[in-house]
């Protein structure tokens, strides 16, 4: 069974003057341990696709199954819980709670999962060391660079022990060296922890590092290699 299975997935935004077909009948399977980039020009539907996979939006048609569970059948509260336990999220920016330190940000998601305090602290420090921020665990987001903030976000995404991590343009706000090192780090985590990553980007340098590249255009997959 594939980890993620999209079946004839479509999304139409019809609250606008003209309905926008943002995602058109996409069929896609992602296996455990993959490191997949969703690539495409601006407006091609990357964010929409990731939001559908992550259960942040409801498809107009088709289905998203994660480990065999059709998430469109879940009630809103079940879906929130599903996201908490099965999916790690990294967004383009402003991922973190500004009043919390790096460690508290990573711990918070485990608190939501009712992980014990000792375990929370242990895992948070471990993960922050794994993303190369062992010496910044008590820094607030405002005291960290953009790249460092994204690393904390990755650490948080992993802290909940999800089945996979969804990252929507995680490098978009970073300069190229920070972007490359974030990607290297994600690739390393993919290897070390066998963590599945699905991320979107339109940065060609980033694409080189992906092992599978799915190219979107106008809401449809035009290449998958």
């Amino acid at each position: 069974m594939p980890l993620i299975e999209l079946h004839s997935l479509s999304k139409v935004y019809d609250d606008t003057a003209f309905p926008v077909h943002a995602v058109k009948k996409i069929n896609l399977q992602i296996e455990k341990g993959e490191f997949t980039a969703i690539v495409g020009p601006s407006g091609s539907g990357k964010t929409t696709l990731l939001n559908l996979i992550g259960g942040l939006d409801k498809p107009t048609e088709g289905s998203v199954s994660i480990e065999g569970v059709d998430i469109s059948t879940l009630k809103s509260s079940e879906l929130t819980n599903f996201r908490l336990h099965h999916i790690g999220f990294v967004f383009q920016a402003y991922n973190l709670i500004p009043v919390f330190t790096a460690r508290e940000n990573v711990e918070f998601i485990m608190l939501l999962q009712n992980v014990s305090k000792a375990e929370r602290e242990k895992r948070a420090i471990e993960l922050l060391e794994a993303v190369g921020l062992g010496d910044r665990i008590n820094s607030r987001p405002s005291q960290l660079s953009g790249g460092q903030q994204q690393r904390v976000a990755v650490a948080r995404a992993l802290a909940s022990r999800p089945n996979f991590v969804l990252a929507d343009e995680p490098t978009a706000n970073l300069d190229s060296s920070a972007a490359e090192s974030l990607l290297d780090m994600m690739a390393q985590l993919n290897k070390d922890y066998e963590m599945t990553f699905v991320f979107s980007t339109h940065d060609p340098r980033v694409i080189q590092r992906a092992r599978r590249v799915v190219i979107l255009q106008d809401g449809a997959v035009i290449s998958d290699a």
Partner: peptide, 15 residues
């Protein structure tokens, strides 16, 4: 935005 992120990563309505 921040609350949206918290809800996205799994903070329930109750919390």
């Amino acid at each position: 935005r921040e609350l949206g992120v918290l809800i996205a990563v799994g903070m329930t309505k109750g919390k």
